[in-house]
Design a binder for these strands. Structure first.
Length: 386
RNA sequence: GCGGAUGUAGCUCAGUUGGCUAGAGCACCUGGUUGUGGCCCAGGGGGUCGUGAGUUCAAGCCUCAUCAUUCGCC
């Protein structure tokens, strides 16, 4: 059932419709509006790998990600600022969300160290040592000209102790407040999102949400998921946190996930998603289709003249055969990366756009059920109790 | 024609003084990949050790013959 929005958002976000817990909304940024739920292609280093900006626009991408850590290291946020900011530098005039680099400090360098002041880490490019503080990371993102800035946070691995996680939640909250202080409301056109953490302890997740939502952020992210935990745990935490987040602010599930993860996230009331899965898997030969995953490496496609996905109308599916796509992949042709990425991005963008439409039309439950039938094993993994 | 070298998995090769169901890398086949190092990880199939004979309890390894490839010299 579609319910009219009970409360128009006070800030940049307007809730347009609800269907169960799923939402459809509109997020206004300095570079234009974003219709939510939305999937945001990841363009870490100023480029969504293998696809050009006009391709993204043609696919209907409304907003892309950049990464403060990567762009700080190369080419440098000041250099980007001198080029007029990331939008002008990359010739992308739609919204850009920048991640803070907290996750990279966690995942890339084994030699990162978190202290009250910030995180020290070694560059994965040249081993040089750097200190990121919440204030510095806001500064980097301002230099980049980001539309949506993420606070610096500490993401803890699956298996981290309760004691460490509890302390880490406190640190992430204090860092979020320092970020807000470094970028007060109306200091500029950019939005600032806080990131909730708490590992896999529901009560710590609650603490994180309560501490952060007591303050004036433009949106709230759910961080620290898909870090090696069983899928059922991911979704248990997601459901727990999403239910606690304020209705009038956008919710962003960071780095997740598969098509079913995303649609399930939408069913919990999440509005924004990013994931490297469509682009990374495209480069590794796993393609998402209306019939499920398809590994283009497989021998059975060697002489398959049919399209990758008969139900897809992307450039790749309109133009090329599975046999050709398999050949391109196996020979390491650069075109393989581009065609596969275009298709996977088309799939994810269409999937989330379709979910939005389903919410607006009050048929989201059926939309989600159809996807669960497509991925029965994954759906079972989600439900499994631990 | 003479002399030397080399023949082990599709490819490039390792296999100690003869000693369990002959190994590696790459390739091939099948999975995986969740706030991105165009990577990486896991599993799998595949060899009458050029051929024939001999020595030995036992031969990829030692002996003889033979075939092939290759280098050098007439």
């Amino acid at each position: 059932m579609t319910a009219p929005a009970s409360s128009a958002g006070s800030g940049a976000f307007t809730l347009l419709a609800r269907d169960g817990a799923a939402r459809a909304g509109l997020l206004r940024t300095a570079h234009g509006p974003v219709e939510t739920p939305v999937f945001m292609p990841v363009g870490t280093g100023g480029s969504v790998k293998a696809v050009a900006q006009d391709d993204l626009a043609a696919l209907g991408a409304e907003i892309v990600l950049g990464n403060a850590y990567h762009l700080f290291l190369r080419p440098g946020d000041c250099l980007v600022a001198r080029r007029g900011g990331l939008h002008r530098f990359t010739a992308w005039d739609k919204p850009i969300l920048t991640d803070s680099g907290g996750y990279q400090a966690f995942s890339l360098s084994g030699l990162s160290r978190f202290t009250e002041e910030g995180v020290t880490f070694r560059s994965h490019l040249d081993g040089s040592r750097h200190l990121f503080t919440p204030e510095k990371v806001v500064g980097i993102q301002r230099n980049l000209g980001s539309d949506i800035m993420m606070v610096l946070d500490e993401c803890v691995a699956y298996g981290t102790s309760r004691a460490y996680t509890a302390a880490s939640v406190g640190l992430t909250t204090r860092w979020a407040l320092r970020s807000r202080a470094a970028y007060p409301r109306n200091a500029g056109p950019a939005l600032l999102f806080a990131i909730t953490q708490g590992g896999f302890f529901p009560d710590l997740r609650t603490v994180s949400v309560e501490e952060l939502t007591a303050h004036d952020f433009d949106g709230f992210a759910i961080g620290g998921l898909s870090v090696g935990e069983p899928k059922s745990l991911l979704h248990a935490m997601l459901a727990h946190v999403a239910a606690l987040l304020p209705e009038d602010k956008p919710r962003y599930l960071m780095g997740v996930g598969t098509p079913l993860d995303i649609v399930t996230g939408i069913s919990r009331g999440v509005d924004m998603f990013d994931c490297v899965l469509p682009t990374r898997n495209a480069r590794n030969g796993t393609l998402f289709t209306s019939r499920g995953r398809l590994n283009i490496k497989r021998r059975e496609y060697a002489e398959d003249d049919g399209p990758l996905d008969p139900a897809c109308s992307c450039y790749t599916c309109r133009t090329f055969s599975r046999a050709y796509l398999r050949h391109l992949f196996r020979s390491g042709e650069l075109l393989s990366y581009r065609l596969n990425s275009l298709h996977n991005l088309a799939y994810f963008l269409n999937l989330v756009r379709g979910a939005r439409q389903a919410v607006l039309e009050g048929r989201f439950a059926a939309y989600k059920a159809a996807l669960e039938i497509l991925y029965p094993e994954e759906a079972a993994d989600m439900r499994e109790r631990n």
